[in-house]
Design a protein around this nucleic acid. Structure first.
Lengths: 219, 219
DNA sequence: TTGCAATTCAAACAGTTGTATGAAACTATT
DNA sequence: AATAGTTTCATACAACTGTTTGAATTGCAA
């Protein structure tokens, strides 16, 4: 059907443009020009610009979450219901990092679109994003299973830190390259994932010493 | 002079609105309404909307950098030219974290404006932001002095991670609160700084073990 | 007070945005 | 081949954007 071709062309063009420039910098006319369709097509097929963004976000959100949960399930089953904390964190940050920094262009567009969505918080997305909380809770639970002795509050901080490292690395990769004069290799995806996972795990497992140091610092 | 009062009112209103809603969501009419001045005042006093943003950014950028460097200088002098890595990192992330999460409302506005600026990368700011690279290099150098045995590339990653943790904690504080059901106390600024500093320092000082683990993970 | 510059103001400008319309083109069933 | 339903298209629309204009007002020096 010609209908689906137009829809798909719009979705592709919109996702790519949004991923590249951000939501506020892309107009409907940019999208339809890139997609090679008529201006009215967006409203005809999606109702409005916001609904287009929402559909894009929901689709990608589901895909990312499934990818993460599959990886989590795999490592937990391999460990008899309890995976090493490094594996849990890798399941959390791996898909996004691989997506954004890896060689697969289509995957990169999708992943970068999600990064934009988490940054710009445009109205149509803000309403839906609460769903992600419950998704993250499943990872918090898995992390707690990995580290039964770590207090719950530290689990949340660890989860937050892991996402922070992954996220910001994608967003600021350009600055890191400049700052380090190219010393930090942003193409070594596995190396980056390893760095993020290690740093986040360390913050969690060295927590007792860390908490003590924290108290000392406060004094 | 009445002139300066109008200028100041515009700057205040603009900074606050930008900090709250982001650049793309605030119009000149919003700003002049909040400032209680005429629409044409912005163009009269600043030339254009972009120049207003640029002036705001430059002013705040200078203030933040000075605050950081003062703290760095203090701890390095106290240690005879070489400060503990925790102190260096605290000088880097402390001012912004204290500014954004602390009780001082005016400071919070300023700090949050800078966060927005680092996120949205609107054209007038993008041109100026390169200056920050050289500022960060001074911290990289200080960190290298603190940890002479750590390879340069790891220093950059550590610096990047420290900023990532601080930054994202400010940006995503709402989600962290929701996710943890309020367990993570975002009002405990010193505690948060301690967590960020500890996590970033750990990633740097445990690097040799970390690098080994990273290689193992890749296999 | 008078005169001049600086500042404020209401109004309008040109450009862009998302959306709506109605005619045209197409598709598929009869 | 004729018709009904779907999809495309050029075009127009109203709302909003940053900016400009020229007259009114203000503040201050002579």
């Amino acid at each position: 059907m010609a209908t689906d071709r137009t829809r798909a062309a719009i979705l592709n063009a919109a996702e790519q443009l949004y991923a590249e420039r951000g939501f506020s910098e892309v107009t409907l006319r940019d999208i339809v020009a890139a997609a090679g369709v008529n201006l009215a097509a967006v409203n005809y097929h999606f109702g409005s610009k916001d609904e287009l963004i929402a559909e894009l976000f929901v689709t990608r959100s589901i895909a990312t979450n499934r990818e993460r949960l599959n990886e989590l399930k795999a490592v937990e089953e391999a460990g008899g219901g309890r995976a090493p904390i490094e594996a849990v964190i890798r399941a959390l940050v791996g898909p996004t990092l691989r997506g954004c920094l890896g060689p697969d262009r289509q995957r990169a567009t999708a992943a970068r679109f999600m990064i934009r969505a988490s940054i710009e918080a445009v109205p149509p997305i803000r309403k839906i994003r609460n769903r992600e909380i419950s998704h993250l809770r499943r990872f918090a639970a898995a992390m707690q299973r990995s580290l039964p002795d770590v207090p719950e509050v530290d689990i949340y901080w660890g989860l937050h830190f892991a996402l922070a490292l992954a996220h910001q690395t994608i967003r600021d990769s350009e600055r890191l390259t400049k700052l380090s004069n190219g010393l930090c290799d942003l193409d070594d995806v596995d190396g980056i994932i390893a760095r993020v996972v290690t740093a986040a795990s360390l913050a969690l497992t060295t927590k007792r010493a860390g908490a003590a140091a924290a108290k000392a610092q406060r004094a």
